[in-house]
Amino acid sequence: MIESILLCTGITVLAYVIGLKLFKAFNHNVWLNPLYTVTLFLFIFLPLFHFDYKTYETGSTLFSLLMQTAIVSLAIPLFKQWPLIKKHFKKISTGIFVGCVAGFCSTFFLASLFGIKEDIMASLLPKAATLPVALSASGSIGGVPSLTVLFVLTSAMFSFICGPKVLEMFNITSKAAKGLAMGASAQALGASKCLQWGEEEGAMGAIAMTTTALIVSSIIPLFTYFI
């Protein structure tokens, strides 16, 4: 057990450090994000080292613990954003709350329409939250956390790519609306996009990410009664 934890942690950290170096060397090219390169690398090379995926998974306990402390660390950006949140409290809370509920309803509706099984539905529901929060929320309502990862990442990528066009198409031009919409749907990716648009959009994007996480994790427990 301890052996596999040490091995898993060691290999992952080493691969991550190399991946990060590569990412920096190529001027932070989006497609060379360590998340893609390192995951792909490990996925392909683990079997070559006679390292079974199951052993790797049992060895990743340390990472799941650090994921929880990462959620706790989100208190720091939330605290820094607090003056701005307080100033626009009603606007932010209405927008994010309505958006989250819309996300839940549309997911629930579409999934029921397609006859998706309960455990997969439970993994889909928290996908608007930032990854560590979505993971713990998914586990708490009987979802499959590793599927949630995939759903969170694909929906963030999708929103990151299509979001700006959609906002333009629907003639949504207010800075706060754009920032909040992107942050609520694409989390950190969306917030980074907003920062390119301007300071206010960027701040709103980052706020949307933290508040969406809060709202999703407080609404999710209600779904234990539905699923």
Partner: peptide, 15 residues
């Protein structure tokens, strides 16, 4: 499902 609900979140939050 993912595309549909992501679009829903973007449009409805924005609006």
């Amino acid at each position: 499902i993912i595309a549909g609900s992501s679009l829903c979140i973007i449009i409805i939050t924005g609006f």
